[in-house]
Simulated assay, not measured.
Amino acid sequence: MSTVADLLKRPEVKETVLKTVQLDGQVVLKIMQHCDGALPAIVTGQLLGLDVGQTMEVTDCFPFPSPEDEGDSSTNYQLDMMRCLREVNVDNNTVGWYQSSVLGQYQTQEMIETFISYHDSIRKCVCIVYDPQRQQRGQVGLRAIRLKDSFIELFKEHKLTGKELREAGVGWRDVFIEVPVKIHNSSLAQALIADLNPAPGATAGDLDRLSLANAGYLSKTMGNLIECMDDMLAEQGKVSMYHRNVARQQQQLATWLQKRKQENIARRAAGEEPLPEEDPALFKPIPEPSALDQYLVTNQIASYCDMLGGAAEKGMAKMYLVQALQKATQQ
C-alpha cells in the first residue's frame, strides 16, 4: 500500500541530451555585427533563450562592454540589461554566451573555466563561436561548442593528469563537443524573403567566393599551426622531465634503501635496534603534470589541420572550375 510520502514524491526527471542549437535570424545578425565591427579585438556577449527538450532556442543576445569601457558603473551591466529586456517581454533566460575568434583560436583554458562557472546554474550551457575571417571566405563562421559532461566532472574533481584521464576514458577529442546549429526565422521574415525579387545574375558576394587569392590565409594558418607544434613540444618536454625526475627519485630511493639495509645489518650485529627502512618524509611522490594544456593544444592543431584541408579542397575545386572556363572560352 502506498504511503502519503510515496504519493507526494516527485518523479525523477531524466535530463535530455542537447542535440541542436536553434538561432533566430536576428541573433545571427547581432553577433556578426558586433564581432565584425570590433575586429581585430575579441568580443563577447550574452545569449538569451529557452531550453526546450533536446533543442536550445536562442532568441536574443546583447554584447558585453569592452575592457576599455568597463568600470564601476558597468558592474551590474548584465543584470540591468536582463531587467530591461524582461520589462519589454523579451526572453531573459541566460543560456550561454558568444565570442569572436581569430582564425579558429578559441580552445583555451579560460573558455573551460567560463563553462564551469555557467555549468552549476545552466546544465546545457553553450558557447557560440563566430570567426569573421572564415565567414569572409564564404564558409560557415558560426559553431556551437559545449563541454563533455565526463570532462566537466573530472575538471571539478581536479583529476587532469594523463593517468586519471586515461582511466576515465577521456581523450583529447572528448573535451569540446560541437552541436549542430540551425537558423530559424519567423513566419513574417520568411514571407518577406519569399516576396523579395532575387538578385539578377551573380552578386559581388558570389564573385568573392571564387577568388583564388588564399596565400595569405594559408600562410597565417600555417604559422599558427607551427606555433601550436612548438607548444606541443614544450608540453612533451614537461612530461619527459616528469618521467626523468621519477626515474631519478626511484634510483635514489634504491640506493638509500640498500645503504639502510647494510646499516641495519651492522646495528643488529652490535645488538642495537634497527632503523626503519621506510622514510616517507625523505622521498615524497612527484606530482604528475596536468594534461589539460596538451589536450587543448592537440584540439587546436586538429582544428588548424581541418581548416587547411578545407581551404585546400575549395582552392582545388576553384582551380578546376577556372580551368574549365578557360577551355570553354578558347573553343
Rank of each mutant, 00 (worst) to 15 (best):
S2E: 12
L7R: 13
K9R: 14
R10A: 15
V13I: 14
E15C: 08
T20Y: 09
Q22M: 03
Q22H: 00
M32H: 01
M32N: 01
H34L: 00
G37W: 01
G37V: 03
P40S: 10
G45P: 06
Q46K: 12
G53L: 04
Q54S: 14
T55E: 14
T59M: 01
T59G: 02
T59I: 00
T59N: 03
F62L: 08
F64L: 15
S66H: 11
P67A: 12
E68L: 14
D72G: 01
D72T: 11
N76H: 12
L79H: 15
M82I: 01
R83P: 02
L85N: 04
R86K: 14
R86M: 04
R86A: 14
E87A: 08
N89E: 09
N92S: 14
N93I: 06
G96P: 03
W97L: 03
Q105D: 13
T108V: 10
E110H: 11
E113W: 15
Y118F: 11
R123A: 07
R123S: 09
K124I: 04
I128Y: 05
V129I: 13
V129W: 05
Q133S: 13
R134N: 11
Q136K: 13
Q136N: 13
Q139D: 13
Q139A: 13
R146A: 07
L147F: 04
L154Y: 02
F155P: 06
E157V: 09
K159V: 05
T161E: 00
T161C: 00
G169K: 04
V170F: 01
V170R: 02
G171Y: 01
R173A: 12
R173W: 10
I177A: 14
E178W: 03
V181Q: 04
D195I: 02
A199V: 09
A199F: 09
G205N: 02
D206V: 04
R209M: 15
L210K: 08
N224L: 14
I226M: 07
E227N: 11
C228Q: 10
M229N: 08
A234E: 11
Y242A: 04
V246R: 07
R248N: 09
R248E: 10
Q250N: 09
Q258I: 02
R268L: 14
A269L: 15
P276A: 07
D279E: 10
E288M: 10
A291P: 00
L292W: 09
D293N: 13
Q294T: 14
Y295W: 07
L296F: 05
C305E: 08
D306T: 08
D306R: 08
A324E: 14
L325E: 15
L325Q: 15
Q326T: 09
A328I: 08
